[in-house]
Simulated scan of single mutants.
Amino acid sequence: MKVIAQRLTLGLAALLMAPTAGLASEDIADQYPQSELYSKPVEVIPHVFSAIGATAPPTYENAGHNNNLSFIVTSEGVVVINAGASDALAAAVHQEIRNVTDQPVVLVINENGQGHAMLGNGYWRDQGVDVLAHVDATAEVRENGDFILQRMQAYNKDRAGQTRIEPANLSFEDRYDLALGGVEIQVLHLGPAHDPGDTQVWLPQWGMMIAGDIAFHERMLPIFEHTCTSCWIDTWQERFEAYAPTYVIPGHGHPTNMDQVRRYTLDYLLDLRGKIGTHIEEGGDLASAYYVDQSRWEGLDTFEELATKNAGRVFEEMEWE
């Protein structure tokens, strides 16, 4: 076990010391121009790979690859986390898997119902691969899938290809367990967080959490109209922290550890809610709430796109708490 732990630590350390790893920026151009992927998958720890997406909004230039597309290689098959934002991205991930193993893909997991998690489902289903999602994520796809697809087609143009809406054919509510090639894989829904049906994948033997969008790193998290930030904080503090993973692949940003994702996720949510709470107590209105001080976070990618929107949405949430 000591040797395995050393291998894991060295693998993650090598990744974090790579030339582009510690310097995520939304201004960094496509790192893997020969592929539809924004970056080539890296082996984060032995047997767990991730193609790290751009820390930027989805664009034609990054083909919508602005989240992390991960896969677990075992002696009995491969499990993929996130189908990708198009059939072309799904096919690109599949090719990368073929480059490292002859094992077939046996399951794809959608981390939520967002486009970059599920728009590639059609490609995987055409390969005969089961797709698993939380029941709330599947409901989101059924309700808003056409709009999500149209939004992707608008920025991705010809790169959208023949992508179609294909809901997951398998679902779960609280937890879905599987053992594959001696690897225990726990698919979890720890509670409400960023988006309906947020899903985490826990690998207890290796201390690895593929966290999905409960955890962000290096870029500002977006708060949607339906996001309950108080619920997100509760889920984090009451359930997510209990796993105490050694390694974390966040939904966005480079693989890291709990201290870093806590800083850029939980600490940000607590800070913004604290600022908005004070603003409300002092009689502030929505118009001025957009400009509460978030300068502590201005170094994060997507700050300019999201900071004021986030403040407004938290005000609307907290006004009635």
Rank of each mutant, 00 (worst) to 15 (best):
T227M: 15
R239T: 15
Y155E: 09
E140H: 02
A311S: 14
A117K: 09
M118F: 15
A14W: 07
D177M: 05
I280E: 03
G120D: 06
R164E: 14
G299H: 05
L16H: 00
W297S: 13
S25D: 09
Q6S: 12
D195Q: 03
T246F: 02
M17C: 11
I210E: 06
G22P: 08
E61F: 03
V73H: 06
G277N: 04
N112P: 06
W232H: 11
V73L: 13
G197C: 10
D87P: 10
D174H: 00
M152N: 13
A90R: 01
D234Y: 04
N257M: 08
Y291E: 13
P192I: 01
Y176S: 13
H217G: 08
L300F: 00
Y243K: 11
H194Q: 10
L286F: 13
A139H: 06
L178Q: 05
K275G: 01
I4T: 05
I97R: 02
I109P: 05
T246V: 15
I45Y: 11
L37I: 11
I233E: 15
M208H: 05
Y60F: 15
Q114H: 13
A244R: 05
C231G: 06
D126L: 00
Y60S: 15
G274E: 03
E281T: 08
W320H: 01
T163M: 00
D146T: 02
A193R: 05
S295M: 05
V141T: 11
V105T: 12
A215L: 04
A215T: 09
E238K: 02
Q200S: 14
V42C: 13
L190D: 04
A24G: 13
R175I: 10
L15Y: 10
A18Q: 11
T74A: 03
I97K: 04
H226K: 02
E26I: 01
Q31G: 15
G122A: 15
A211V: 14
F240S: 12
M318Y: 02
N257V: 08
A168T: 00
G181D: 13
I109Q: 01
Q95T: 04
E218H: 01
D195N: 08
E321I: 14
V73T: 09
A24D: 12
Q103A: 11
R219Y: 13
I249T: 13
F49G: 11
V129P: 11
T59D: 06
G182D: 03
S86V: 12
V108K: 05
D195K: 08
Q103P: 13
Q153W: 03
A29Y: 01
L269H: 11
V261H: 00
R273I: 04
V187F: 01
V93P: 10
Y243S: 10
E36H: 04
L221C: 15
Y123C: 10
S50E: 09
D234R: 07
Y60Q: 15
D195H: 06
